[in-house]
Each structure stands twice: as structure tokens, then as C-alpha cells.
């Protein structure tokens, strides 16, 4: 009987909870995410045409510049404001990865430079590297077996 009550209540909560405005949020995410990627495209143009970098170097150059932008905007306290507007539009681009590195690191500064800043630097971004790198090794090994 109690289990039934819990199920009913959870169903009621699910129905009545104020919903996030999915369509509006998607539009905002599209706008901001698209804009961040366009900035990346401009950086890429600069890398290829102005600096005459090779294809692989352009990729690295773009990543470094975008990470720099994301990290700095987080440091000066602007990225969280973009994020509260843009939802996934600011999470998914690599600038969001930089944001997830700087944000916990600066917040844990009072706990010192080793266990605070140093350790917390990867509290959110660590899993990304763990799963990204591990799966890339797996894929590389599979490529050897099934060429």
C-alpha cells in the first residue's frame, strides 16, 4: 500500500513539476553553440590563411585558442552568465570543457594550491579525459584487428 502511495506521488510530481521550456532552451543553445563554433571557424581561417599552418596544426591551434577563451571568460566571471542563458550551448563546445576545469579549481583555492586548485582542476573534466582517452585506445586497437 505504501509502495503504491509512493508511485502515485512520484507520478503526480512528474506531471505537475514546472517544465523547462525545451523549445526556447533549444533555440538559445543553437544560437550560442552555433556562435561559439563560428568563432572557432574564424580562428581556423586565421590559422590556415594568415599563419599558413598544416591541417593538423590548425586543429591544435583552434583547440588552444578556444580553450584559452573559455578559461579566461570563466576567470573573469562571464562564462557562467553565458551558461545560465545558453544551457547546453555553452556546455557542449570545448569552451565548456575549459569552463569545467577553471570553475572548480578557482573555487577550491582556499584549500590550497595542491589539494585545492591542483586536485580540483579535473574534478569535472577528469571523467571526460578518462572516457575519451580510454575509448580512443580501444578504437585504435580495434582498428588493428579489423583494418
Amino acid at each position: 500500500m505504501n509502495q503504491q502511495k509512493g508511485r502515485d506521488y512520484r507520478e503526480l510530481v512528474k506531471q505537475r513539476s514546472p517544465k523547462s521550456k525545451t523549445v526556447l532552451m533549444c533555440f538559445k543553445a543553437f544560437l550560442v553553440g552555433g556562435l561559439i563554433c563560428s568563432i572557432g571557424q574564424v580562428v581556423q581561417f586565421i590559422g590556415t590563411s594568415a599563419l599558413n599552418l598544416s591541417e593538423e596544426d590548425v586543429a591544435a591551434f583552434t583547440a588552444i585558442v578556444m580553450v584559452f577563451l573559455g578559461a579566461t571568460l570563466t576567470g573573469i566571471g562571464i562564462y557562467d552568465k553565458i551558461g545560465s542563458f545558453a544551457g547546453a550551448g555553452s556546455v557542449v563546445p570545448i569552451t565548456g570543457f575549459a569552463n569545467s576545469i577553471v570553475a572548480p579549481a578557482m573555487e577550491h583555492k582556499p584549500e590550497g594550491y595542491v589539494m585545492g586548485v591542483g586536485a580540483k582542476l579535473f574534478s569535472l573534466a577528469g571523467p571526460v579525459l578518462v572516457y575519451g582517452i580510454s575509448s580512443s585506445i580501444l578504437v585504435g586497437l580495434l582498428a588493428l584487428i579489423f583494418p
Binding site: E56, A59, A60, F61, A63, I64, V67, F68, A71, T72, T74, G75, I76, G77, I94, F97, A98, I101, V102, A103, A105, M106, E107, K109, V117, G118, L121, A125, L129, G132, I133, S136, I137, G140
Partner: peptide, 25 residues
């Protein structure tokens, strides 16, 4: 994998650390 993304990862560590040193939340 890491070779081709080394720039991005190194930048994330370096700029991440730098910004955490320079700014307060």
C-alpha cells in the same frame, strides 16, 4: 589519441591553472 589532442589538453591544464590562480569566484 593524446598526441593529436595534446595542444588542447595542455592548454586546458595551463590556462585552467593560470585562471584559477588569478581570479576569485
Amino acid at each position: 589519441g593524446i598526441k593529436s589532442t595534446a595542444g588542447g589538453i595542455a592548454a586546458a591544464v595551463f590556462f585552467g591553472y593560470l585562471n584559477a590562480l588569478l581570479f576569485k569566484p
